[in-house]
């Protein structure tokens, strides 16, 4: 926490966490006295719309460098939870800590630490890729002197160099998704929140995006190691990139475990998913249908 405040830009100083400490949940005491090494903490996050409960009492902590698959059937509350984590929606109850900053008492510092790709990538169709990323870097408080380098790095990491001068509106869907990913990482945030990053893409593009995300979490020199929460209802995606799974159903957390543990007894993720979403679901059939494509792929 103190190291954080001294840095003053909301980013976690790299030196404060040694690489080998990342694995342990309580390893790096120096960085955060509240959440001992936890970059993302959701504390009893609840969202109600009148009588309708969208999300209730979601609690979890995610350590630096983790890649967490946020699973659940459509309408389970994945997007709502992510919107609360990013500060887009205020929770009815509970709070979220991002890199040690409370999203609701210190929103500016907390938001600075987040890269967020919403379900529909937020793009200005009339802007060029390059100038769009420069604008995002600016509003994410990247200092003027570092902005050019930040844009170049984001373009390189998302393999967008060839289209940097193109107008976003003329790009294909796969490229737009990549620009969406580039705007999420341009300020090199410690936390990445991706809401269904592969929705609506063809199999080839899906593979590209997955490779990209995998690369983001294994940083090259000079990049912050990113902690990723990725929402999806495609189970194969979780299998491919995540090491931990949080499963929510009807607004409640039902599973939170390492992927290896879930599938240790020979069960497939598909079975786990069906079991937890169908057992207490009001419409078991619907949940089963939702889990269908994941099992097939």
């Amino acid at each position: 926490m103190f190291a954080n405040e001294k840095a003053g830009d909301g980013r976690i100083p790299r030196e404060s966490v040694a690489a080998d400490e990342v694995v342990g949940f309580g390893g790096d005491v120096g960085f955060n006295c509240i959440g001992v090494g936890h970059v993302i903490q959701a504390k009893r996050l609840t969202k109600r719309y009148g009588d309708l409960v969208a999300v209730e009492d979601i609690d979890f902590s995610i350590a630096r460098g983790e890649v967490v698959g946020f699973l659940g059937p459509n309408g389970a509350g994945k997007t709502t939870t992510m919107r609360m984590l990013t500060g887009f929606l205020p929770p009815t109850d509970g709070t979220a800590l991002i890199a040690g900053h409370d999203m609701f008492s210190d929103p500016i510092a907390a938001r600075r630490a987040i890269g967020y790709l919403p379900e529909t990538p937020p793009l200005y169709p009339e802007m060029r890729v390059e100038s769009f990323l420069a604008y995002v870097a600016k509003i994410k408080d990247v200092p003027h002197a570092e902005r050019r380098a930040a844009v170049d790095r984001a373009l390189a990491r998302t393999a967008l160099n060839d289209v940097r001068r193109q107008v976003i509106g003329t790009l294909s869907k796969g490229f737009r998704q990549r620009v969406g990913l580039a705007q999420a990482i341009v300020h090199n945030p410690p936390v990445l929140i991706l809401d269904e990053p592969t929705a609506g893409l063809d199999p080839l593009q899906i593979r590209e995006i997955r490779t990209l995300i995998a690369e983001l979490t294994a940083p090259s020199q000079g990049d912050t190691q990113q902690t990723v929460i990725l929402s999806t209802h495609i189970l194969a995606e979780v299998d491919a990139i995540c090491r931990r799974v949080i499963l929510i159903n009807q607004g409640r957390k039902v599973v939170d475990a390492p992927l290896s543990e879930l599938t240790a007894d020979g069960r497939t993720l598909d079975q786990v998913f069906t079991e937890h979403t169908a057992s207490d679901a009001a419409f078991p059939l619907e949940a089963a249908i939702v889990s269908g494509p994941g099992g097939a792929s």
């Binding site: 909301g10 919107r83 990013t86 500060g87 887009f88 500016i108 510092a109 938001r111 600075r112 987040i114 967020y116 919403p118 529909t120 990538p121 937020p122 793009l123 200005y124 169709p125 995002v136 509003i139 994410k140 408080d141 705007q183």
Partner: peptide, 14 residues
């Protein structure tokens, strides 16, 4: 329409 409302409101802007 662009979905950029979400970008603006989750950026360190007031």
């Amino acid at each position: 329409a662009n979905g950029t409302e979400e970008l603006l409101l989750t950026s360190p802007l007031t």
